[in-house]
């Protein structure tokens, strides 16, 4: 469909056709292959700490040509560490995209919004295309826009949990109020959830565990691709009315009014 051909995801001036981004949690060659071939991924997250390895295990070797790398700062516990990891990624030749990921909690892996703003500001000033992973808070999102983020990546539910859009209401507020791509990250466990987020107006979906733990990787990757496209089409077409309580009467309640 033409409308989809012209419908690009634009992040920091770079255009992407695909709206599926592969996360970095659980890596394998098979997963990356499936994400690229069957889910159409053009942007693949790379955990710099996993890439910090010797020849035979280097994830950089798994990344096909033509794919844009999105190094993340996982392992960083504060802004300072995130900035160091981002710079290391650039030195390793991973380009200037970076996903800021700062976690001070090893149990739930929830992002630290305050440190994330600080790191985003510093990295944006340094020329990075910064995509911060955050807990969906409108004030924080506005601040991220102010300090130079290229996209905002709210979590749907705790990372790796496959629990779907637990923060749906708040993500919707970000979609409505923030003039940057809102990329739903973390917690998307099923294609239907990805579809729902796309229908809401999310610009893209990032997922990893949902694919990595699937029984048939290629099939699940392709299911995500279909779901994201379906959700995007629905969003672009303008979804119909939503009946929140009961059915609407074909005879209007105010039908008796004549004047």
């Amino acid at each position: 469909m033409d409308i989809l051909n012209d419908d690009k995801l634009i992040i920091g001036g770079h255009e992407f056709q695909s709206r599926f981004i592969l996360g970095s949690g659980k890596y394998s060659l098979k997963l990356i292959e499936a994400a690229v071939k069957y889910a159409g991924a053009e942007l693949i997250t790379l955990a710099v700490r996993r890439a910090n390895t010797k020849e035979e295990e280097n994830i950089l070797d798994y990344i096909p040509k033509g794919i844009t790398l999105l190094p993340n700062t996982s392992g960083a516990r504060n802004a300072k560490e995130a900035v160091r990891i981002a710079k290391l990624a650039r030195e390793l030749g991973c380009g200037n995209f970076v996903k800021v990921e700062i976690m001070k909690d090893t149990k739930y892996l929830l992002p630290d919004n305050y440190e994330t703003i600080k790191a985003t500001e510093e990295l944006a000033k340094d020329g990075f295309v910064v995509m911060p992973y955050m807990y969906p808070d409108l004030n924080v999102a506005r601040e991220l826009v102010n300090v130079g983020a290229a996209a905002v990546m709210p979590l749907a539910s705790p990372i790796g949990s496959n629990r779907g859009l637990a923060t749906k209401e708040f993500i919707q507020i970000l979609i409505d109020e923030i003039d940057l791509p809102i990329i739903v990250d973390a917690g998307i466990g099923k294609p239907s959830q990805a579809c729902e987020a796309m229908e809401m107006g999310a610009a893209a979906i990032m997922a990893n565990t949902a694919l990595a733990t699937a029984g048939d990787l290629p099939l699940m990757a392709s299911a995500f691709n279909d779901a994201i496209i379906a959700g995007r089409k629905a969003y672009l077409s303008g979804t119909g009315r939503v009946l929140t309580r009961g059915a609407s009467s074909s005879d209007p309640l105010t039908g008796f009014l004549h004047d």
Binding site: R49, T53, K54, E57, G75, E81, I85
Partner: peptide, 10 residues
């Protein structure tokens, strides 16, 4: 999937 390193000293 054997992993030899998933760590950075920062």
């Amino acid at each position: 999937q054997p992993v030899l390193n998933d760590y950075l000293y920062v």
